[in-house]
């Protein structure tokens, strides 16, 4: 087993999975990927990820939240990024900066789609770094 950090990527857009995986693999992470909530559930049970990037709307409107919830229950320390285009579609507004939203969504970061790969890489580095610091203390 390698020392590389393991990142779970779940998105029903196979091209997003492809691109995010390619970028993160190039950065030296181990990527495990799924393209549905169902696959995501299987993956997070079988592999403990160090970070997860989840699409919000897959089979269900809130698939990303469901996965996030399950992951946090198993591994509360694992940072979760949720990708969403939902704000534009439904007019529902929430932000991970808003403590109230964070409390029920429990995601560490919400990013609007489409997200620039560079920006996503930066956020992944930052969150893993923070998680590592928390783990030390």
């Amino acid at each position: 087993m390698s020392d590389n950090k393991r990142i779970l990527v779940v998105d029903d857009d196979i091209d997003i999975v492809e691109q995010v995986s390619a970028a993160l693999t190039a950065d030296g992470y181990d990527v495990i990927a799924g393209t549905s909530q169902e696959e995501g559930e299987d993956l997070l049970l079988s592999h403990k990820p160090d970070l997860a990037i989840l699409d919000l709307m897959m089979e269900q409107m809130d698939s990303g939240f469901m996965l996030c919830h399950q992951l946090k229950r198993l591994h509360p320390e694992t940072p979760v990024i949720i990708l969403t285009a939902v704000t534009a579609t439904t007019g529902i507004s929430f932000a991970s900066r808003d403590p109230e939203s964070r409390a029920w969504i429990k995601a560490d970061l919400l990013l609007d789609k489409p997200v620039r790969t560079e920006f996503l890489r930066h956020q992944v580095r930052r969150l893993l770094h923070e998680a590592a610091r928390v783990a030390e203390t």
Binding site: D13, D15, A88, K113, P114, T117
Partner: peptide, 18 residues
């Protein structure tokens, strides 16, 4: 409509960036 247009353009843009 905007949402539906954004997804494919975003995907293609991602590949072009690669």
């Amino acid at each position: 409509v905007a949402h539906e247009l954004k997804a494919p353009v975003g995907a293609v843009e991602g590949y072009l960036r690669m």
